[in-house]
Design a protein around this nucleic acid. Sequence first.
DNA 1: ATTAGTGCAAAACGTTTGCAACATT
DNA 2: AATGTTGCAAACGTTTTGCACTAAT
Lengths: 150, 150
Amino acid sequence: MSDTCTLSRLDALLGRLKAQGLRLTPQRVAIVRELVTRCDHPTVEQLHKAILTAFPTTSLATVYKTIHLLKEQGEVLELGFGELGSRYDGRRPEPHPHLICTRCGAISDPPAACAELNELAERLAGQSGFSISAHRFDLFGLCPSCRAPR
Amino acid sequence: MSDTCTLSRLDALLGRLKAQGLRLTPQRVAIVRELVTRCDHPTVEQLHKAILTAFPTTSLATVYKTIHLLKEQGEVLELGFGELGSRYDGRRPEPHPHLICTRCGAISDPPAACAELNELAERLAGQSGFSISAHRFDLFGLCPSCRAPR
DNA sequence: ATTAGTGCAAAACGTTTGCAACATT
DNA sequence: AATGTTGCAAACGTTTTGCACTAAT
């Protein structure tokens, strides 16, 4: 679950935070690690629960504040849909597609990277006079296990 | 602001609702018209305010209920981002890209239709074993007037 | 010693719901 | 007359905020 690439991103990210004079409190480190390590795009509630096992007094507010911080730094992607309870992607902060299962709620990343997306974004931007700084491509449907007859 | 195409969609939509035994109350008609007519992707609050001028007693709850109804029927697209206050597109309920200005909040539709999106969605779906039923492509950046130096 | 961060409780926000009164069919 | 719809107010769940306390530097 914690490959070398993920761990080096964790270190680099913590270093970037420290370099800005931000304090690396145990809670903060735990939240960041959780965010960078997990690939299930957790909710704030799920992150909080996970942190509690190691730091039982951690408050929800702290989780929210830390996420807010990381969002500002562009280190985390917020995936909010119409519904309540945003989910977060701290593994790959650059825009990339997401596959959302409308039955079980699972969110996964597509197996292959997708270069066309940026091109497409640029082209649409050019036609409209917008200058694009980010984009989102979300695909809704049934994941393989929810498709399967049971 | 109300071209022929938009108006015929309005009629068709109202017909579809009536055909299901739903009642065409004045409030409902007003909300639907507003939703189909406007191209600025309004919030619930904005819709409510617009309805109030003709029907001063209309409640927010009624606006929410009507939108919920239309969403269920696939007649309206809900555009929720991380932030609060979803916005709605009742002109083109089929998935299409949206350009969101991160400075002034304007949401606009790209000038040209974009066929590649569906292809791309299908391809990613195939690679991942998902069966896609809907998708969303949102582009964030600065609109032409917010880009312009003042 | 400083000063940023924590944790609690309360507030804010958009949205949903229950229900009695009402209006469309 | 029957029943779907309205409008109010209260409830909901998530997220934000204020502030005294704590801990990292």
